[in-house]
């Protein structure tokens, strides 16, 4: 036997690889993708487009080529993160050593405590449950209320959370800073103050104040804060934004 034996015929003894070398007729991957139909064709076209878009973006003036990482992750970034994290964890440990929690009496259904309260972060939600005075009664139904007071309270929670959730779909555009959008900054400040006043309403039996007055103030304070914020930001806006945004808006015009 020698290597001069012709091996053109297909070997069937299992010793070959069975892999056929690609000839000119064999499509490569990009050709295969181009030949696809229907949804996969659409996908291919879209990806090509977005790749081109990426390429264009990269060639814009505000992109810089960086073939080396900018700020070294190790050790610089890691050391900084480690320091911040240890400091923060240390703060938690310090707090827990200094102010350990109390343990109240065991559960007793026969003895209602003077004050029933959840943890502080649920006061706002608890306060929204106490808005029965605002539950409208219909004269058509003979002064009856449309829904039970407690249903109204749960619904108030849903409304508040739902409003926060749709904020990005209500407030559009490229404005970011509070001075650029005084209205939404005012809404935010009113919301912050409302979350505090509604928390105060939830502990109304601890606050030495007429409960009707407290209810009025709960809604009045946020509105006043919002109005003040709006006025202040509108006043600041002109001078502040002129200096700051000349270059910014030249490159990125507002929608």
């Amino acid at each position: 036997m020698s290597d001069n034996d012709t091996n053109d015929d297909v070997r069937t003894d299992g010793s070959g690889t069975g892999i056929v070398a690609p000839d000119d007729e064999t499509p490569d991957w990009s050709e295969r993708k181009e030949r696809t139909q229907g949804l996969s064709r659409l996908t291919y076209e879209y990806f090509e487009r977005s790749r081109r878009e990426d390429q264009d973006l990269r060639q814009q003036s505000d992109y810089v080529e960086r073939d080396v990482l900018a700020f070294p992750a190790w050790p610089h970034e890691m050391m900084r993160n480690l320091a911040l994290t240890s400091f923060f964890v240390g703060m938690i440990l310090f707090l827990s050593a200094a102010l350990p929690p109390e343990m109240p009496a065991p559960a007793n259904a026969n003895q209602t405590p003077a004050i029933i309260l959840p943890d502080w972060y649920l006061y706002w939600s608890f306060g929204l449950l106490k808005l029965q005075n605002l539950n409208p009664s219909l004269s058509l139904l003979g002064g009856q209320k449309l829904m039970a007071d407690r249903t109204y309270g749960v619904l108030a929670n849903v409304v508040v959370v739902g409003f926060v959730a749709i904020v990005p779909f209500l407030n559009k555009g490229s404005a970011r800073r509070p001075v650029e959008q005084p209205f939404w900054a005012a809404v935010g400040m009113a919301g912050v103050v409302f979350s505090l006043t509604i928390a105060a309403l939830s502990v109304q039996n601890l606050i030495p104040m007429d409960s009707n007055l407290l209810l009025d103030l709960t809604f009045l304070f946020p509105i006043v804060t919002g109005a003040i914020t709006y006025a202040a930001l509108r006043t600041m806006r002109e001078g502040y934004m002129f200096n700051l945004n000349r270059r910014y808006y030249r490159l990125r015009p507002p929608k």
Binding site: M103, P104, A105, P106, A107, N108, A109, Q111, T112, P113, I116, L117, P118, D119, F126, L129, A148, R150, T151, G153, V154
Partner: peptide
Amino acid sequence: YLLPWSQLSFWAGQIGVEMSLSI
């Protein structure tokens, strides 16, 4: 908050049950 089953836990749980019942 409910796990220690103290007075606070019990009455917070009571509020929770009533809230869910009023949905």
